[in-house]
Simulated scan of single mutants.
Amino acid sequence: MKIDSNLVVFITGASSGFGFQVGLDLLKSNCKCYLTDKDDIDQNIINQYPRSQVVFRNLDVTDEEGIKNSIEDCVKTFGHLDAVLNSAGIAPLESIIDKNFSNKMIDLCLNINVIGTFNVSKYAALQMAQQQSQNKERRDYAIINVGSIASVNALDRGSIYGASKGAVLSMTLPMARDLGKYGIRVVCMCPGFFNTKMVQQLPEQKLKYLAKLTCLGRHGEPSEFSSAFQAIIENTFINGTHFYLDSSMATPHL
């Protein structure tokens, strides 16, 4: 796929962090973006682009019917769907023996990070497969899921978050095997610590310490995640795999 005005990308978690940055960079490259998030987005950003290029909708990825409707609306608005970024997620950090860490929070984390990612991928894949059957020539499609370094090496207090991101990582390869015959690639990006709103909520001293654990001695910038996303979109042989975007960080016991 090319990063151009013909590309249509569906993004969850688009009001902040990775989803926001990817959407912003794609819009600057004249791509068409269907941006979704449970939280509202900065409308000043959206208003810089015509409605024929960008749409924002509130979407809770725990709402399966809402996901289905949003995918359908994306196609109705832009004519087709080429790629998905599953960026919606939460990161609860509590010890397994913390009395305040309830089953309600466990359910919420798994419903957003795992089931939400799965359902967005499912309805996007159904649409892409349908499109492929109608194409005169085979086209490339991509579903890109956001895992984490926590997918295999979570911090202490990260048992449920790590489990959820481990599930996202684990579903990537079988999804790719299911969908390859339809020309749909599935890739999992596993970022470390980036200068996003979520990460910057950590104490400054801890952020500085974590930065020293990377080979570059700093945290990533959202623009660096975005450029990696675009590289996956453009390289049509990257499939069924995952990679760490963490500057070879050694995750410590904090």
Rank of each mutant, 00 (worst) to 15 (best):
K2Y: 11
K2D: 10
N6A: 15
V9G: 14
F10N: 14
I11F: 13
T12R: 15
S15T: 09
Q21I: 12
V22S: 10
G23A: 08
D25P: 11
D25G: 10
S29A: 15
C33E: 10
N44K: 01
N44C: 09
I45P: 00
N47S: 02
Y49T: 03
P50S: 02
Q53H: 07
V61F: 06
T62Q: 06
D63W: 03
E64P: 00
E65F: 03
E65C: 05
G66K: 08
I67F: 06
I67K: 09
S70H: 13
I71Q: 15
I71G: 11
D73S: 14
A83F: 05
N86Y: 13
I96S: 06
D98W: 07
D98Y: 04
F101K: 01
S102V: 10
N103S: 10
K104A: 05
K104C: 05
I106P: 01
C109L: 03
C109T: 06
I112S: 08
N113K: 13
I115A: 15
F118V: 11
N119P: 13
V120S: 13
A124E: 04
L126C: 12
Q132A: 01
Q134I: 03
I143N: 00
N145A: 01
S151W: 05
D156C: 13
R157I: 11
Y161I: 03
Y161T: 00
A163L: 00
S170F: 01
L173G: 02
A176T: 12
R177C: 08
G180A: 00
V187A: 01
M189C: 12
P191R: 04
F193Q: 07
N195Q: 14
T196D: 09
V199R: 12
Q200H: 09
L207W: 07
K208N: 15
L210H: 01
A211Q: 05
A211K: 02
A211W: 04
L216P: 11
L216N: 06
P222A: 06
A228N: 08
F229Q: 07
A231R: 15
A231N: 14
N235M: 05
F237Q: 03
N239P: 00
T241D: 03
A250T: 04
A250K: 14
A250V: 06
T251K: 10
